[in-house]
Each structure stands twice: as structure tokens, then as C-alpha cells.
Amino acid sequence: MAGTIGGSVFILCTFFIGLPVLIADFMIDRHGQKDAVTSFKEQAPGKSWFLIGWGGIIIACLILSFYSVVGGWILSSLGRSLTFQLSSNGSEGNYADLFSNIISSPIEAILVQGLFLLLTVAIVSGGIKGGIEKASTWMMPLLFIFFIVLVIRSLTLDGAMDGVNAKTFLKALGQAFFSLSVGIAVMITYASYLPKTEKIGNSAINVASIIVLFRYLQV
């Protein structure tokens, strides 16, 4: 998406629109240090703003239902890769057929989705520091290495620059919001763990900068 809509538009949307919203999310729960629903209730008692918190939680659950399916596909492909089952699929058509076989097998799809959810629960149950941060210390560097490999490979393909063009501001804005996870209670929840001495602006800029860097590596 970032490559299709134009990288420069994505950067502008991220820093000039997404970043202020991210700072607002941080401020809401760094102050209350509660879950998204309780934070809205405490800061706007008697008002209906807490429905935004519930809306964010519901949206996050819906996003997880999508990502768990995709995560299952990735685990299935990873398993085939580690057992050298992909080496025989040398053409694009064969890979397409392989993917069709994965998604058309309900038993395999459910099993790998369940495995992905179990891994997610195992990490999240450890909390922010003992779970997510601990897993990220090795998962994020590994992801960065994968991106570097993909960048090098993609630059060797024909028409590699065809995806770099500006189309619509709306798509860029949507991608920026999606990448920053703003407005869906995710960053509000993370901000509840921020110490009072943490500078919100610096944290938000760091997050936005890293997001832009990784999006460009994907492009």
C-alpha cells in the first residue's frame, strides 16, 4: 500500500496527522494508567466517551481475527520452508497453487490458526515487559533482517520502481493510521505503562519514525 500510494504522501500523513493522534492516545492513558474504557470514564465521568474505548477493543479483536488467519498461513509456509518442501516449487504458478492448497484445507487452516493464537496468548500473558517486550527483543531484529533480504531481492526484479507513484491522499492517511495503530485502544493501553517522567512527544516521534523506516523497507 505504501508503495502504491506514494511514499512521500505516507510520510506526510504519518507525521502531520497520525503523529498528533498518537500523542493524544499516549496522553489519555499515561494520565490514567488504566485500560482504555476506564481511562475515558475517569477523564470524562458521566459522558459517553468510554464508548470509544469499547469501540477500540472490539476493532482490535476483529483485527486479531484477521491476523490470526494470516499468521496461520505464515506458520504453515514457514513449516514447509524449514522442511525443504518449498524448494520444488520453483515457479510462480506452483507457489500460487501451494497457497491455494493451504487456504482450501479447513483442517490445516484451523490448526495453524490455533497455533498462532496459542503463541499470541503465551506472549501476551507475560504482560508488556515480561511478554511483549521480551519477545520483541529478538523478533523485531529478526524481522528487520528479513526486510533487508526482501529489499535486496525486490530491487533485482523487473519493474521494481513501478509501485512508487502517488495516487490518493486518503489511502496514505488510512495506511498511516493503520501503521500507528491509533484510535483502536492499542496505543492507549500501551501508554498506561509509560512512567510519568517519560516525554510523550519523544516516544511518539520514535514510534512514527520506526514505522516509516519499516514501511520503506517493505516497499
Rank of each mutant, 00 (worst) to 15 (best):
G130W: 00
G130V: 07
G131C: 06
I132W: 01
I132D: 07
E133K: 08
K134W: 02
S136Q: 09
T137I: 15
T137G: 14
T137H: 14
T137S: 15
W138C: 14
W138F: 12
M139C: 12
M139Q: 10
M140A: 08
L142Q: 05
I145Q: 03
I145E: 01
I145Y: 03
F147W: 09
I148F: 09
V149Q: 13
V149D: 08
L150Y: 11
L150F: 12
V151L: 14
I152F: 05
I152K: 07
I152V: 13
R153Q: 15
S154R: 10
L155E: 06
L155S: 07
G159F: 11
A160H: 05
G163S: 15
N165W: 13
A166L: 13
K167I: 14
K167D: 14
K167Y: 09
K167N: 09
T168M: 10
T168Q: 03
T168S: 14
L170C: 11
L170G: 14
L173V: 11
G174I: 05
Q175A: 09
Q175R: 00
Q175Y: 04
A176M: 02
A176G: 00
F178N: 10
F178W: 07
S179W: 01
L180N: 02
S181Q: 04
V182N: 06
V182R: 03
G183A: 00
G183F: 03
I184Y: 00
A185N: 04
V186M: 07
V186L: 12
V186C: 05
V186G: 06
V186T: 12
M187Y: 03
I188F: 04
T189E: 04
T189G: 02
S192R: 00
S192T: 13
E198K: 15
K199G: 12
K199L: 11
G201W: 11
G201H: 11
N202A: 15
S203A: 14
S203M: 10
A204Q: 00
A204E: 01
A204G: 06
V207E: 05
A208N: 06
I211W: 00
